[in-house]
Design a protein around this nucleic acid. Sequence first.
DNA 1: CTGAAAGCGCTTACAG
DNA 2: CTGAAAGCGCTTACAG
Lengths: 337, 337
Amino acid sequence: MTSRTIAELSGVSQTTVSRVLRDDPAVSEATREKVLRVLEETGYAPNAWARAMRLRSTGVVGVVAGAVTNPFYPELVEALNTTISRKGRHMSLWVASEESEREAGERAALAAVQQGALDGVIFTTVTAESVALRAALERQAPVVLMNRTLEGLPCDTVSTDNVTGGRAVARYFARHGRRRPALITGPESVSTSRERESGFRDALQEARVAVAGAHIIRGDFTHAAGRAAMLTLLERAEPPDAVFCVNDVVAFGALDGAREAGVSVPDGVWIVGFDDTELASWAAFDLTTVRQPIQQLAEVGLELLLDRLADPAAPYASRRLPAEIVVRRSTGHAAAE
Amino acid sequence: MTSRTIAELSGVSQTTVSRVLRDDPAVSEATREKVLRVLEETGYAPNAWARAMRLRSTGVVGVVAGAVTNPFYPELVEALNTTISRKGRHMSLWVASEESEREAGERAALAAVQQGALDGVIFTTVTAESVALRAALERQAPVVLMNRTLEGLPCDTVSTDNVTGGRAVARYFARHGRRRPALITGPESVSTSRERESGFRDALQEARVAVAGAHIIRGDFTHAAGRAAMLTLLERAEPPDAVFCVNDVVAFGALDGAREAGVSVPDGVWIVGFDDTELASWAAFDLTTVRQPIQQLAEVGLELLLDRLADPAAPYASRRLPAEIVVRRSTGHAAAE
DNA sequence: CTGAAAGCGCTTACAG
DNA sequence: CTGAAAGCGCTTACAG
C-alpha cells in the first residue's frame, strides 16, 4: 500500500495525499477529512525510506558506545536514547564489546553516515588510535565526541571535567589525613584516564602528599582489572590507605579484591571510584565516587550534533560539564567536599 | 556524489557502476578495474536508503528492550547486537526506561516496521497488556517474542525454560533441608515471573515443603523492590531460611536488604536469583542463580526472525532453551545440582 | 558484455 | 485549493 493507493481510494491525487500527511494548510477542510478517513480505515503508514531519500535526512542519530561490562555505558546509552527520542529522532547503536572491536564499530558508524543511513554520530569511546575518525573528519563528517575526547580535531566535543574530578579526590584524601594514596588507572591513550590521573596527581603534589611509584597500577576498564590491581596493592610492604580508581567498575573490582584479601573497607583502606553509576549507591558497594552528569552529557552532546547538522560551517565547540564528589561508606561516610 | 558521478568519471554508464558495486560477474575485467579505481579515488559509498527502497529490505532489525536498571537487558541487547552484526545486519534499539514507556516503545518499533524502516522486530518485554502488538500481528508483522512470551499469538517465540528453572531452585532448597522458603516475585502479567513462580511452587509442593502466604511478596523487577521485600520478610515472626528472587537484580536488592538488617548470607538466610548476569559472579554478591543462555537466546531469536522474513507463511515456532542452576556462596557453596 | 529506461514511494516547485 | 510532473539514487529486466 502506497500513497497512490490512498489517493485512488479517496478520489484525490497522490500529491494531495502527501499534503494531508504533512499537514499542509493548503488543503480544503473537506478534502482533508475525506483523505483522513481513508488513512484511518487503511492504517496506512508512509514509507520512511522514500521520505528520507527525498528529504536527504533520516532522523537517525548514531551512537558508538562501550560494552555493558562497564555499567557507565548502558546508563549513558539510555540517557542518549531518551534524549534523542524526545527530539523526535531515533538512535542507532554500535556497541564495541571488546577494545579490539571498537575501531570496527567506529568504521561501521562512519560508513553509515557516508551512506546517508544516519544524519550524524556521537562517539563515546574514541582513543588516540581512532584512525578512521580522522579521515572522516577531513570529509566534514558530522561527529560529536562525548565522554572521551581527542585534542585538536575538527569536531565538537563534550565531556565531564575529569581533571577537576581527579583533583577533588586528591584534596579529599589529603584533607582527611590519607598519607599513602594509590591509583588504579586506565590506558594512556584514553583521555578520561589521562585527565583523571593528572588532576589527582597534581593536587596531591600541591598538598605535599607523595604517591609511591609502586602504588600506581595501570590496567583496563574492567572489574577483573580492579580486583587484580587491588590484590597486588594489598601485598605491598606498605599497602595504601586510600585508592582512587579510574572508574566505578574498576572500583567495584577493587572492593571485591579487598574483600577477598580480608581487608575491611573503609577501616583498612578507602576506595573511591568515578562515574556514580547506579550500582555505586547499592549497599553492597556504597562507593564514594565522582559523579558524571550523564543526562546532561547526553543533552549537550545531542544539542551540539543538531547544531552542527543545521550549520556545518559553524565554529567547533568544546563543552566541559562539572564533576561532583559523592561521599559514601567506602570512605567512612566522611562529610562531603 | 552519486553512482552517476562515478559513471561519468570512469566513462561508463550508471548501470555498469551499479553492477560493479554489486559484484555482478557480467562485467568485463577491464571495465571493472576502471570503475574500481574511480571508486577508490573518490571514496564513494552508495546511498543506503535508495538501495533499501529498491530492494524493499533494509537490513535493519529492531529490538525492544527493558531498561538498564535490570542488567539482564543490557547483556541481552549486547548479545543481540553481536549476533545481528555477525549476520551482516544492523540493530535498531528501543529502550523502555520505565514500565509506562514500554507500550510506547513497542508502538514506535511496530510503526517503524510498517513504515518499512525495519525488516522485523524482536520484543523482549511483552506483557499481557501489549495491545498494539496484537493488532500488528493480525497484519502479519514480522515479530519474534524473546524472553517474555504470550500464549496463543500468531508469532514465533523463544524463551528460557523458566518453569524448570523455578523447579530446580525448589528442589535444591528441599534437598538441603530448607523448611521456610520465601519468594520475591514480579507482576503476574509477565510470563517470566509467572512461570518461575509456578515451577518453584509446584516443585515445593511435590517435596512437601509449605510456603507461608506471608512469605510471598510481589513487586517489580528492581533493586529497590528486592531490598524492600527482604526487609519485610526479615521482620516476620518466622523469617524465611531461603529466598528465591524472580531475577538477579531483585536478588541483589535482597542481598543488600539482608546486609542492612544485619542478617548474614548464607548463614542467616539463603538467597537465589535468576539470570546469571555478570554481576552475580562478583565477590560482592557471589549469588546462586539460574543461568539463562543469553547468547543462545539471541541466536535462536534472530534465526526465527530471519526464517520468518524468508517465509512469512511458515508455521509458527516456539523454542524453549534450557535453564541451569549455578551454585555460589549465597547458598553456602553447596554442591551444584 | 553494456546501456537506456522503468520504477521503488515519496516531496515539492510549477501551473492552473 | 488541486494535480501532473520531475526527481531523490538506486536495481534490474530488457534489448542489443
